Simulated assay, not measured.
Amino acid sequence: MNDLVYVFAAVAGLAALLATLAIWAPRRTAVRMTAVVLTALLLPASYLGFTTLLSQPKPITMEWLESGAGEATVLGAVIREDEGIYVWIQPEGGSTPRYYVLPWDLKQAQQLQSAMRDADKNQNGLKMRSPYEPTWDRREPRFYAAPQPAPPPKDGPGTGDDDGPMIYRHPGWDV
Rank of each mutant, 00 (worst) to 15 (best):
L4H: 09
V7S: 06
A12S: 14
A12L: 15
G13D: 01
A15E: 01
L17K: 02
A19H: 05
W24P: 00
R27F: 10
R27E: 08
V31Q: 11
R32W: 05
T34V: 10
T34Y: 01
A35S: 12
A40L: 14
S46L: 04
T51C: 03
L53I: 05
P59E: 06
I60M: 12
T61G: 10
M62T: 15
M62Q: 14
W64M: 10
E71V: 06
T73E: 15
L75M: 11
G76T: 02
G76Q: 14
V78R: 15
I79E: 06
E83T: 13
Q90M: 11
G94W: 04
S95W: 01
S95P: 14
Y99W: 12
L102N: 03
L106E: 13
A109W: 04
Q110P: 00
Q113F: 06
A115K: 03
A115T: 03
R117W: 08
R117V: 13
D118P: 00
D120H: 14
N124D: 09
R129H: 10
S130V: 02
P131A: 09
P131F: 11
Y132Q: 03
Y132C: 02
E133N: 06
R139N: 09
R139K: 12
P141D: 11
R142W: 05
F143S: 02
Y144S: 07
Q148H: 03
P149E: 07
G156S: 12
P157Y: 08
T159L: 10
D162V: 07
G164D: 04
P165A: 06
G172H: 04
W173F: 05
D174H: 09
V175P: 03
